[in-house]
Amino acid sequence: MPRLQEIHSNLLDRLQEAKDQGWLGEVAAIETTMAAAAQKLEAMRDRAAQPPTVHLGMPDFRRDAGRSSAEYED
């Protein structure tokens, strides 16, 4: 995530330069790239906010605990 934040910041500088120079095609390309980087950062933040593990609980063996092999013999 830090690297993507650095790239996004760099894109802001490049965007300003492209606007100053009147490079309209470059402005559009940088804005598209910035939007994609912003989406990726948001997804990374959302993922980081989620708990790292999922509690699955313990299986309930009570139903099977009283059975013996004799119950299955005919």
Rank of each mutant, 00 (worst) to 15 (best):
L12Y: 03
R62Y: 02
A35C: 06
S69E: 11
G25E: 14
L12G: 04
A37C: 08
G66K: 06
D46C: 11
D13S: 10
Q21Y: 13
P52S: 05
F61S: 05
D74N: 10
R3I: 07
R14W: 02
L41S: 07
K19E: 15
E42Y: 04
L15K: 08
R67D: 12
L41W: 03
L15C: 01
F61I: 03
G57V: 07
M44S: 13
A29D: 15
E6C: 06
K19F: 12
D64L: 05
V54C: 09
K19S: 13
D46L: 08
D74E: 13
V54Q: 08
M1W: 14
S69Y: 09
A70H: 02
L41M: 05
R62C: 01
K40Y: 13
T33S: 03
P2F: 10
Q50H: 09
A18H: 13
L15V: 03
I7S: 04
R3C: 03
W23E: 12
L24C: 07
Q50N: 07
R67P: 00
T53L: 11
R67K: 13
A36E: 15
Q21P: 06
L56K: 05
P59C: 07
I7T: 02
M34V: 04
E73V: 14
E17I: 10
V27W: 07
A48V: 00
M34N: 07
P59Q: 02
D46T: 15
D74M: 10
H8V: 04
M58Y: 11
E73W: 14
D46R: 12
N10E: 04
A70L: 15
A28T: 04
L41N: 02
R62D: 01
A29Q: 15
M34W: 05
Q16P: 07
Q5W: 03
L11M: 12
E73K: 14
N10T: 04
A48P: 08
D60H: 05
G25V: 03
P52Q: 11
I7R: 10
P2K: 12
D13V: 02
G25K: 01
H8F: 07
K19W: 10
E31F: 13
L56M: 00
R47Q: 07
V54P: 08
A49F: 14
Q39K: 01
R63C: 04
S69H: 11
Q21G: 10
A48T: 03
H8L: 00
S9H: 06
K40C: 05
P51C: 01
E17S: 09
L24S: 15
G66R: 08
Q21F: 14
